[in-house]
Design a protein around this nucleic acid. Structure first.
Lengths: 188, 188
DNA sequence: CATTCATTTCTGAATCTTCTGAAACCAATG
DNA sequence: CATTGGTTTCAGAAGATTCAGAAATGAATG
């Protein structure tokens, strides 16, 4: 053990947090490294520059730059500067709910919205067929069943999308409070 | 174009749905094929056997078997049999909310719970240090700040976990209704 | 209890993703 | 306007995933 021993405990806790958070990132569709960079920024709390990230995480400059940029795009990290220093520094959003809101906003934009668009397109494909004359009753029933399934899914996705927007909007804090209440032990 | 033209429209709509759903699966931590198999079962609605899946999706027997098995584990697909037929057939859960509940249940179990466990462990690492004597004020402050960050995250994750359980439980239908209402245009 | 039909497991090959290191780029500063 | 310090992009290498096909296993039937 080096030094007084205690400072190392903090570093170890940080490292383990980074590892765990990175692991989870993988299971959620973002790269492990990106999640690790985010974890590092969050858990240290302080503004870090590209070289800090490279050193601590043992990753290349290119990788660090790309990850940092992606985190900026997601809106969970922002740039800062220090007086008399040309380097850019990065800070992670420190409020968990704000961070989560940013993530939800992006995932809706990137995944739910395009999915909804495609689904509407696909749903339209069978709309003409539904009305077409000269179709065996059996075939017509098949198309109807298909349409109902897609409609059900569309309705669900629309609900998710609306709920997401509610949560993300300025009024989202109300929803957050509601969620906390709903999840609390006492309620219900 | 073969046949009357219209039946192909249905097949095409199915194929496109399968493609889109599979794509999305990739972004959510399950394999594309698994999502495609699920999409196929959902969109056709009918019981399909391993060979049906292989033929329609052009995948190997091993791959089909593995994917089907995984879907069973997730609880979004179930087995059936046909009289006088030794083959197993598979059907997808047809109710979207039930399906979604199954997914939420599994993801909590597989990702949130282990994450919470690790987080608690990590949080404990710095608890002794916090109380330890002979620590510079500055270092103590560092540890305190670290602990507060972790506590905030832990509280958030616990809320998510509780909310998830609520949603999944028998009483979850109430939450579903609440979600629908919250997401509706008129409310608020 | 042997045979047949169906399902699962396994392994190497192919594919896709992620990472590195270097070169190109950009912007302050003297 | 050259130089220095910093950031981004890119092509190829390394690594991880996913898949097909075969071999192994398991279960129903006569």
């Amino acid at each position: 053990m080096s030094g007084s021993g205690k400072p190392d405990t903090l570093a170890e806790a940080q490292d383990r947090f980074i590892a765990v958070w990175g692991q989870m990132g993988g299971a959620w569709g973002i790269t492990r490294t990106m999640a690790e960079v985010h974890a590092l920024l969050y858990v240290t709390g302080g503004p870090l520059c590209t070289d800090d990230v490279m050193d601590r995480l043992q990753i290349s400059r290119g990788n660090a730059s790309t990850s940092l940029r992606a985190l900026l795009d997601w809106g969970v990290v922002s740039r800062t500067h220090k007086r008399g220093d040309r380097k850019e520094y990065f800070v992670a959003e420190q409020d968990v709910w704000t961070m989560f809101r940013a993530i939800v906003r992006e995932r809706i934009k990137r995944e739910v919205d395009p999915l909804l668009a495609s689904m509407h397109e696909i749903r339209e494909l069978t709309e003409p067929a539904r009305r077409a004359a000269g179709l065996a009753a059996e075939e017509r029933a098949l198309v109807e069943a298909h349409n109902e399934r897609l409609d059900q899914l569309l309705e669900f996705l629309t609900t998710v999308e609306r709920l997401g927007h509610r949560f993300v909007s300025p009024a989202g804090r109300g929803l957050q409070a509601a969620a906390t209440l709903l999840a609390s032990k006492v309620a219900g």
